Simulated scan of single mutants.
Amino acid sequence: MLSLALISAGPADDGRWYAGGYSFSDELGGFRILSVNGSGTRDDPIEIQEQLNLATPVTLVIRGANPSRLDATEQTGVHFRIVTVNRSGLGWIGFGFELQEIRGKPSDFDDGLSFGQTNPNPDFISSNRFQRFESRFESYDRLSFEDGHVDPLDLAAFGFFVTDMTPVPEFYLVQDPRIPSS
């Protein structure tokens, strides 16, 4: 039997990365996952290191890898830390995240998926490059970071808490680097 440390050291045979009862995939393109580790607690968030090759929205596919994740006792949420290398060739002046239970359709109140709507603690949201954030719960679940920048080849780190009160086997995290308009 493989240890969890070995599984999270690189993608599994199916191309997915595993950590904290979830699998993570860059299968929709535009970015590449470099590593995934962590259990999903506040002290040990699931950390996804990635590089974004475009300055357009990209979508991370998240699947429940552990059936016990769907138990009622597991519905409290998971802490994430996204560490992104800007390989787009353009500077970013903002960055947004959007949760989707159905790909292409923003999460709404009824799906139970949110950036901690049941516990909107601002201490759970962070960035090393942006000074301000705004959470929008309705009519979609978005988290926008502003007042900062990420130059090409620099790293940006983001922390947030995701709750899913009616868990489904698959959901999506859209990541949207914002560039200056001309």
Rank of each mutant, 00 (worst) to 15 (best):
L60P: 01
G29W: 03
I82A: 10
Q100T: 04
S107G: 03
F31H: 15
P167D: 06
V83C: 13
N119L: 15
D176A: 15
D111K: 11
P11R: 14
T56P: 01
V36A: 14
R129V: 12
S127R: 13
L153E: 05
A5L: 12
Q131R: 15
N53F: 12
P177T: 09
Y18P: 00
P152S: 00
T41Y: 09
D176F: 10
D43M: 14
A157R: 05
L113V: 03
V36L: 11
S135P: 02
A156K: 00
G15D: 07
I46N: 11
G112H: 06
H79D: 14
T73V: 13
G159L: 03
I102S: 09
E47D: 09
T56C: 03
A9H: 08
R103I: 15
I125R: 14
S88C: 06
G20E: 02
N119E: 14
L143Q: 02
P180S: 12
S135C: 00
G104T: 04
N121E: 14
I48T: 05
G91I: 08
S35A: 15
D110K: 12
I93N: 15
V78M: 11
F115C: 07
Y140A: 06
P122N: 11
R136L: 04
R42E: 14
I102Q: 08
F97Y: 02
R42W: 14
P167C: 01
P180L: 13
R132N: 14
S3E: 04
A12T: 10
